[in-house]
Design a protein around this nucleic acid. Structure first.
Length: 677
DNA sequence: GAGCACTGC
């Protein structure tokens, strides 16, 4: 097969990219190594260094500085240090730098502590959920997740301990980045001395400037562009669209292996199913040229893999061999692999969207944006010039949207809106959103909050609403925790709340048939449903010493189970603070299930003779997710509540428990909308 | 009778 690629000499916007000289703060397998050069001279060699004086001048003169620079120019590690050196952390002030991801906050902080020459947690520290490696008195440069800083505004609405705040990776537009920008704009009116640095990739920068510009004050905001040294990435497009990009990805990777010089290959597909199929397609090509096959090492990369399996992609390929890493979007920003010289980009990504009218979450495959196509191509040029093969024609690239719509426009905003109300922002229409969520989303959130008793008729927070706003939980789950006092089952509800906050704990081991995991899962099965099954799994995990070996033999994810333990510990502190008793239901599953209904009463469904369910709200046809213990069984009462509803090929419900229909009535719900047959 | 993009508190 010949490559049907056309290589324009100077390809589109994705042709040249920055050289990556900094740790990008993702999954980094080893600590950054320093050469014999002094740290100081290393710092001065970074592309950002020549902009140091200009940056400091702008921070002095302007309130808000939008910094535009490609990944790797050094802004994340250097800018906070420049501010520190210029005295912005004097008089007990702190300089904050936020990241959308935990790993980024920790690894960048580690690096900067080394550069500053301090112990991590002293002058330089980080704060992420469950880990606070910082000191209120001594830490001057603090890296943190944006969610953490937003949470801090609930306690200190003016963020008075900070003299300067850098919002990094703002172009990713995570919910908390957006909420923070809105709150910070408000804070700056009351506290103009606060300096705000918004760091972004090129495409969105002017939108941020517009957002912060003030017609009455020209010194309000400015924009600073940082150029960096670059390694070119040549971009090639398909001449014709392909009907099957998975097969095409396998063929293109194979041809690179046969025809191109050394260097690893990174393939972007949308999900696990496609990755598995691509691996199969590759293995079918192997017999055609056996010798070349031995030189190619195919590896899968997605979030469902265990840590061990994920780490395999970082192992250096042996001499004379090359890796082909077949990945989901995880490799676009979250995971950085060195040595990639070729990127094969399907041009598609799976995103989760939320339909406020139907309350349905859905997972759909959509074309990538220009911004993410560029980001993906850039993965080929981190350490040397590279090539990016886009599996679509150039005309398609030109039709792509500039960037993925911000998260606030795509997700359920119930919890964020409750938190805004807790900040005293009661009139949501007056809040200055960077991008406003759709009005149906806001209405639905308000309606849900009112129904749950979190806001009163005046739209203001109730006493319980005030407390729930502090909990790092979905509103329904938090309500369930508060109601456990009445049902005397705090101990068990706490565990269930933690287990529903993490991803699926049951894993399908690599290579083993799904039936095996299914058998293991049955050992924990509670006939009442999935919530109690999760409770059983958690209790067994703690009983058998929280060991990874035990998890492995029971098809459970050790990583996810350990996270559930941390979350449970954190939630327990909230319960103690709110004086909620930790009673045990003493095996009374009925009490426990009644309590579950207090959180999930809006998610009721009724069993139908054909094996499907109908939702209480909307009478929608629902299918049980195959991971449920109720997948094969009819509930005796004919009624269930479910944790979540998701649309893929059909509408499915996950994490289900059998209930008595009368219990729904406790919450004023009318279920007579379903006809009796 | 059959399936799970990615973060974050």
């Amino acid at each position: 097969m010949s490559l049907k690629f056309w290589k324009p000499g100077t390809a589109g916007p994705g042709s040249t990219l920055d050289r990556a000289t900094e740790v990008e703060g993702n999954v980094v397998p080893s600590a950054p190594a320093y050469s014999s050069l002094s740290i100081q001279s290393q710092r001065e060699r970074l592309p950002i260094f020549k902009h140091r004086e200009k940056l400091l001048y702008c921070v002095e003169k302007y309130g808000v500085i939008i910094v535009v620079g490609q990944t790797g120019c050094g802004k994340t590690t250097q800018l906070p240090q420049y501010l520190f050196e210029a005295g912005w952390a004097a008089d007990g002030n702190t300089i904050a730098c936020t990241q959308p991801r935990r790993v980024a906050a920790t690894s960048v902080a580690t690096r900067v502590a080394a550069e500053v020459g301090t112990v991590l947690g002293d002058e330089v520290g980080y704060t992420i959920r469950f880990e606070d490696v910082s000191s209120k008195e001594r830490t001057r440069i603090l890296y943190m997740t944006d969610g953490m800083l937003f949470r801090e505004t609930l306690v200190d609405p003016l963020l008075s301990r900070y003299s300067a705040i850098m919002i990094d990776e703002a172009h990713e537009r995570s919910v908390y980045t957006d909420l923070l920008l809105g709150v910070l704009k408000k804070i700056r009116r009351k506290r103009p001395s606060l300096r705000l640095i918004v760091s972004s990739a090129t495409l969105d920068a002017t939108a941020f400037l517009e957002y912060f510009k003030d017609s009455t004050d020209p010194d309000q905001a400015t924009i600073v562009s940082l150029e960096g040294r670059m390694y070119p990435v040549e971009v090639a497009y398909l001449q014709e669209p392909t009907p099957d990009y998975v097969r095409m990805a396998a063929q293109v990777s194979w041809n690179i292996n046969l025809q191109q010089g050394p260097g690893d290959i990174l393939v972007f597909l949308t999900g696990r199913e496609e990755i598995d199929r691509c691996l199969e397609e590759l293995s079918e090509l192997i017999p055609t040229v056996p010798k070349a096959a031995s030189r190619l090492i195919p590896l899968a990369l997605h979030a469902g893999l265990s840590t061990d399996e994920q780490l395999r992609v970082f192992e250096k390929a042996e001499r004379g061999t090359r890796k082909v890493i077949i990945s989901t979007n995880i490799a676009e920003a979250s995971v950085t692999i060195d040595g990639i010289k070729y990127v094969v980009d399907s041009g598609f990504v799976k995103i989760r969207t939320f339909n406020p009218t139907t309350a349905l979450a859905s997972l759909s495959t959509v074309p990538t944006s220009v911004a993410s196509a560029i980001q993906r191509a850039g993965r080929a040029g981190r350490t040397a010039p590279g090539v990016c093969y886009r599996l679509y024609p150039e005309s398609v690239f030109e039709s792509l949207t500039h960037s993925t719509p911000p998260e606030v426009t795509r997700i359920d905003m119930t919890t964020p809106i409750l938190q805004l109300k807790s900040l005293g922002i009661d009139d949501l229409m007056k809040f200055e959103w960077v991008s406003a969520p759709p009005s149906e989303t806001v209405l639905r959130a308000l309606e849900g909050l009112a129904a749950a008793g979190m806001i009163g008729e005046d739209g203001r927070l109730t006493v319980i609403g005030e407390q729930v706003a502090e909990c790092p939980l979905e509103v329904g789950i938090a309500r369930m925790l508060f109601m456990s006092k009445e049902h005397k089952c705090g101990e068990e509800i706490l565990t269930i709340a933690a287990m529903t906050s993490v991803q699926d704990v049951f894993i399908i081991p690599d290579g083993a048939p799904g039936a095996l995991a299914e058998l293991e899962r049955r050992k924990f099965t509670a006939e009442e449903g999935d919530h109690l099954t999760l409770l059983n799994a958690y209790n067994a995990f703690t009983k058998y010493g929280r060991s990874s070996g035990w998890c492995k033999s029971h098809a459970l994810s050790f990583r996810v189970m350990s996270r559930a333990v941390s979350i449970r510990g954190q939630l327990k502190k909230y319960m103690q603070r709110f004086k909620l008793p930790l009673d045990s239901c003493e095996g009374d599953a009925r009490r426990l299930r009644r309590c579950l209904v207090s959180g999930y009463w809006r998610n009721g469904a009724r069993w139908m003779a054909d094996g499907t369910y109908r939702s209480v709200r909307g009478n929608k046809v629902l299918h049980v997710h195959p991971t449920s213990v109720l997948f094969t069984r009819k509930p005796r009462s004919g009624w269930v509540i479910f944790h979540e509803m998701e649309e893929t090929k059909k509408t499915q419900i996950r994490i289900i428990t059998e209930i008595e229909p009368d219990w729904l009535l406790d919450h004023g719900h009318k279920y007579s909308t379903i006809e009796k047959r």
